[in-house]
Structure formats: structure tokens, C-alpha cells
Design a protein around this nucleic acid. Structure first.
Lengths: 343, 343
DNA sequence: CCGCATCGCTTAACCGGATAAGTGACCCGA
DNA sequence: TCGGGTCACTTATCCGGTTAAGCGATGCGG
């Protein structure tokens, strides 16, 4: 195992100084074209790769962004959302030769501590924050810290950092109108964590549209997104008097669990019950019947988040960071789990 | 946004030299207890956090490990395995204050290139390699590179690096004996990628046990682990003459898809068909009927992998790295998807 | 022909820690 | 009382890059 090649080695081989090598490698003025070519050739031949720590120390940048996920291992594992998001983030980061540092945390306090440490250590140049809440301490925290950050979700009122989001209200309306057109008048909804921003946005959108359409009932039950709770809530909904003819789920996992409960209770889907899921992962197509769901390109969403982050990392620190990127809203993909309501 | 606190600031505040501060902070001899306490107090008060790049540059370690995943976004998203594994890895790494760098790649070449770059840049101190294949180029590659690495899977013959694995043959036998006891004589299996080491191990174990038990048929179909292929293969299996009375799936996603196909074809589970899944994610309990499956603690598995990696990173470079850690094998969790075979 | 700008490169300082070597004060035993 | 050892700390160098400043050679306008 030979020693690493440094710019000093290249300088010696090329018969120039370290400085000249640095200028040549970084495409900056200060060396002639001939010398630059020679240096680049030698560097390539010697298999030179710059030491990340040395560069970071000099220019004070880590060439990495961080993401701290505050979800349990179980949720993270089964929720396709995160891996798809990460995969999209990754694609953009790699293209800009940035690395991705991942950390899983249990509490907000821990998450804030991770941000503080990452930034103090200059381990990352910025962070992406998922699961934006309605009153999210993290937003002010990172802004005060001066840590470049992008909120994955929004819109956020009075935000001091960029938010990348898509309109959730419109798809909510679309679902309800669709179910209404199919004749459904009693609809239930299994939502996600009540404290999440997008849950609140959907809550409001559903309530409003339900009133506009004059639905008989439109009840919402909050869950923790797990299959267990999805099943439990569905059981309760389906065994109530005057049970709904359609249930809308805020994620695919609870929807699949709900479908299982319908099977268990001998309730036909879509004959006696229509089911709509949010977040069209392959999971929705695995079931029988396949689930009608809201499709969005999560991977592309992740890419846009990463782009936004890279753009503020690249800008000067006191530049305006309060812009907001609105992505394409989710589209309804009708499948076999929804049908006409039978009285 | 104030400037970062460095050891020079602490030194000035304490009226000592940078060296003394470094000794004090790292708990090394060279300063009196009184001075050490004073320095530590000042450091804490000033909120000192060492700059990672500077430390890395000095001690030539990144305090981070890398993992490159060569799976499509879709597979990664829906496969609970990876997030659970990562979550376990993460837990151990955080405890040792190591970071995790994640990269998603498309091809082996790209993966090798990532390892080469990471190591040359000293961006990581070691890597974890998933999806070990039967003839895996990566094993020799990282060994030649001198990059500390641990194979997540095994056992690997003549390996030059540690492997963390669990016996797959024993659970295979357990499943077949269980199904045999239930009266099943025609069994099919939807396996994973044929080139993966654990697929081959299971292939052999099933073939042997099937012969021992004198099964009528025990056919294996390789898949890419996606629900689409799981469904397609299951459709073919179930529409063949003399169709099997039980199907074993190598992961949970294909099993869930298979269950959907059985529903679609009106084949009762477990009445006319028994289903066994591997990798007991919550997914298996969401379906109706819940899937009989092989349970293993993937998160704990990830932790053990990370521990193995940290141990070789901590050891001197020429120490023996060929040890092998055998974990607890998967346990069969019988649920409602398996029952007696009916002729 | 002189003064000045420009080019092409070198020198040296710097980033923020770790650490080997050096130094003075002190203690201790002979 | 003196030599040697230990303690507590300082000094200086190093890690591997970046970059401001310096400097000789060349070109060019007046």
C-alpha cells in the first residue's frame, strides 16, 4: 500500500512549485497553458485525488450535506418515501460531487444537537429538514445558527429559509370531488401525525371541500403512519354504525393495512368500500385490488430539494434565503380500489 | 454569526499555548489537573467543537464510514431491509461518534470508483458492502486498495476481509420441514438475484432438503426482488398444470405481490395455497392473511456489521482482517398464510 | 529608452488541530 | 551541593491543500 499522492509529489515530478500545481488543477490563472497541461497529465498519471480534509481546512467547506431523520427504524424501513427521497437527493448531490451524511435521531433535541455539531465541526455545508411541523423549532434554530438549510415541505409562513414543497390542498380537493362523483357521501380519512405541516394543510383542505360538496360526514383520524395504527383505526371506522363508503389514507402503508382489514372483515373493495392512498409507491400496485392513489415523483422532489440547498450553499451567507420552490402537485391515479358507492 | 471557536481562542483565554489546550482536551498527559480543568471549563463555556477537517488532516482519519448501495430507487424505497440495516448501522456509528456517508450507484464500476475516490480523499475510514455476490469483484478490489471493509453477508471462502452473516441454510431446512409437516409436497420458490451469495446458499439448501424429504417438486424462479416480477412469476406458477400448494418467497415484497396475485386468481390463502416470506418486515403483518415469514433482527445485524468495521478501523492496518462474525439465524414466525395442504 | 503593466511562477503564510522536541522549574537522592 | 529525572508547559513542525504577496522577465506605449 503506497503512500497517497499529494500536490507536493506532483510539483516535484513536474519541476514546479506546489502553488503552480494548485493553480493548474483548479483551472485558475497563474500558469501557462503548456505547464497546466503537463501538470494535469502528471497528476492523472500518478492518480492524484485531493485530500478532502486538507481542502476543507483551507476553503472551509465540507462538500457534503447532512440529513437527520427523526423516525423510528420500523417506520423508516417500511415507508418507501424516505429512500426514494434520498435517492433523488443523492443523484443531484453526486452530480455536484457533494456527499450525503445521514443520521437517524430519536428526539428533536437530539436532532438540533446534531445540527449544532455538524455545523460547528464543519462536517456539512448545509442540511435538509424533513417532516416539517406546524410550529417547528428547527426552522429558527438552524437560521440562528447560520447553517444553510432547506425545508422539505411547505409553504412556511415567515420562513427564514427556503422551502421546497407542492400544493397539497389541490389534490385533496381532487380526491374528494372524484369520490363525490362516484356517489360517496360518507368518507373517512386516516391522516398522519397531527403536528406535521402537510397534515394540517390537508386537514383544512378536506374540511373545506367536504363542506363545499355538502358531504354527509368527513371524519379524520390521526395516526403515526404505521400499519398497526392504520389497521386499528380502520377496524374502528368499519365497525361503526353508518360506516363510511370510502376511506382516504395519508400514506401507502396505512392504506395497505386498511385494505387488509377490509379483507379480514369480509368487506369488498371496491364493492362496499373504496380506498384511496397517498404517495404512490410500488406498494400500491402490489395489492389486490391495486390501490387508487396520489402519484408524485418523490425522487424528483428530492432532487429539487438538493438543488435548492446547493444553491444557497453556493451563494454568499447574507444573501436572501427565503425563496420557495413549488413543485408539481400530486396526480390522482385511479385504480381498482375505488368504485361507485352502493347505498 | 460569530466566528468559530478554535483551540487558539481557548489558549488565549486560558493564558496557555495551543499545545497545552490540545493535550488538555484530549486527556493526554502534559498538563496539570488544575490547568486541564480550567481549560476544559473555558472550552465548554466558549462552546468549542473541534473542526473535523483539521483533526482529520492531522491524524489522517475521517471519523466516517461509507456505504454504497447498488439498487434502483424503486427497490431501495420499497425494500424495508436497507433502511432497517442502515438504522442499525447508524446506531452503532453514532455511539462511536462516527458519521455515515451514503451513496447510491448504478453499476459495479461506479461502485468501485466510489470506493477508490472515498479512500483516496480519505472521506471515509472504511466501507460496508451489501449484496455480496458469488464472484464479487469488490472483495479483492477493496482488499487491494487497503480500504477497511466489511462484507454484509457470507460466509465467503478465502475472504481477505471480515464477513458478518447468518446461516441461511438452516432456516431453509426449517421452512421446508414445516411445509412438509403440513402435507405440502409440491412447493415453488421465488428467489432473488441468482448472482447473490445468499441466493446460491439458499438454492443449495432447498435442493438438498427437498431431496431428503422426497418432495414431488421444488422449483425455483429467480427474480429481481420487485413486486412486478414477484407478481408475474406467481401468475405463471399458479396457472401451471399441477400447481404447487405452497410458495416460498425470498423477500417480503415479492411475497406480498404473490399474495395479491392469489387473491386476483381467487385462490384461497392458506386454503388452497400456503405462502412463506423471508425478511419479516411490518409489511408481512399488514396483509390479510398475515404472512408466515422468517424473522431476523436486521437492525441488530446492521449494528454488528458496523461494530466489525469499527474494530478493523481501530486495529493496525496489517492486522488480520479475515475474521467472520456469525449472527443469529432467522426464525420462522408462523402466521395465517400457511396451513395444511389439501389434495 | 524608460516606466509600468502583465505574465508565469515561486515563496510563504494560513486553515485548525496533533505532537515531537525543547525548556525551565522543581524535587530528590547521593 | 550537584547531577539527573520528572513535571508542566512552550515552541515549532507537520498534515495537504489554498492563496495573497513577491519577483524576475517580457512586452509595450510614450
Amino acid at each position: 500500500m503506497t503512500r497517497r499522492v499529494t500536490i507536493a509529489d506532483i510539483a516535484a515530478a513536474a519541476g514546479v512549485s506546489k502553488g503552480a500545481v494548485s493553480y493548474a488543477l483548479n483551472g485558475r490563472p497563474g500558469v501557462s497553458e503548456a505547464t497546466r497541461k503537463k501538470i494535469l497529465a502528471i497528476a492523472a498519471e500518478m492518480g492524484f485525488v485531493p485530500n478532502r480534509a486538507a481542502r476543507s481546512l483551507s476553503v472551509s467547506s465540507a462538500q457534503a450535506v447532512g440529513i437527520a431523520l427523526r423516525r423510528s427504524a420500523r417506520t423508516l424501513g417500511i415507508e418507501p418515501y424516505f429512500m426514494e427521497l434520498i435517492s433523488g437527493i443523492e443523484a443531484t448531490l453526486s452530480a455536484g460531487s457533494f456527499g450525503l451524511t445521514l443520521q437517524i435521531v430519536d428526539t428533536v433535541e437530539e436532532e438540533l444537537e446534531v445540527y449544532r455539531r455538524w455545523w460547528a465541526e464543519r462536517r456539512v455545508d448545509g442540511v435538509l429538514m424533513c417532516d416539517v411541523g406546524t410550529a417547528d423549532r428547527r426552522l429558527d434554530f438552524v437560521a440562528d445558527l447560520g447553517l444553510p438549510a432547506v425545508a422539505v415541505g411547505g409553504p412556511i409562513e415567515g420562513a427564514r429559509l427556503p422551502a421546497v414543497w407542492h400544493d397539497d390542498a389541490e389534490p385533496c380537493r381532487e380526491i374528494l370531488e372524484y369520490l363525490h362523483a362516484l356517489g360517496h357521501r360518507r368518507i373517512a380519512r386516516v391522516a398522519g401525525f397531527a403536528h406535521l405541516l402537510h397534515t394540517e394543510i390537508r386537514d383544512n383542505a378536506y374540511a373545506e371541500t367536504a363542506a363545499d360538496l355538502g358531504l354527509e360526514s368527513m371524519e379524520t383520524f390521526h395516526s403515526d403512519y404505521t400499519g398497526e395504527q392504520g389497521a386499528r383505526i380502520t377496524r374502528r371506522i368499519l365497525s361503526s354504525a353508518g360506516r363510511p363508503t370510502a376511506i382516504i389514507y395519508d400514506n401507502d402503508v396505512t392504506a395497505v393495512a386498511g385494505l387488509g382489514v377490509a379483507h379480514e372483515l369480509g368487506i369488498g373493495v371496491p364493492g362496499q368500500l373504496s380506498i384511496v392512498a397517498w404517495d404512490d409507491s410500488p406498494l400500491c400496485r402490489l395489492t389486490h385490488p391495486a390501490l387508487t392513489s396520489l402519484t408524485r415523483d418523490i425522487s424528483a422532489y428530492g432532487s429539487q430539494c438538493a438543488e435548492a440547498l446547493l444553491s444557497i450553499i453556493g451563494a454568499e451567507p447574507n444573501a436572501d434565503r427565503t425563496f420557495s420552490v413549488q413543485c408539481r402537485p400530486a396526480q390522482l391515479s385511479p385504480r381498482a380500489s375505488t368504485g361507485p358507492a352502493k347505498p
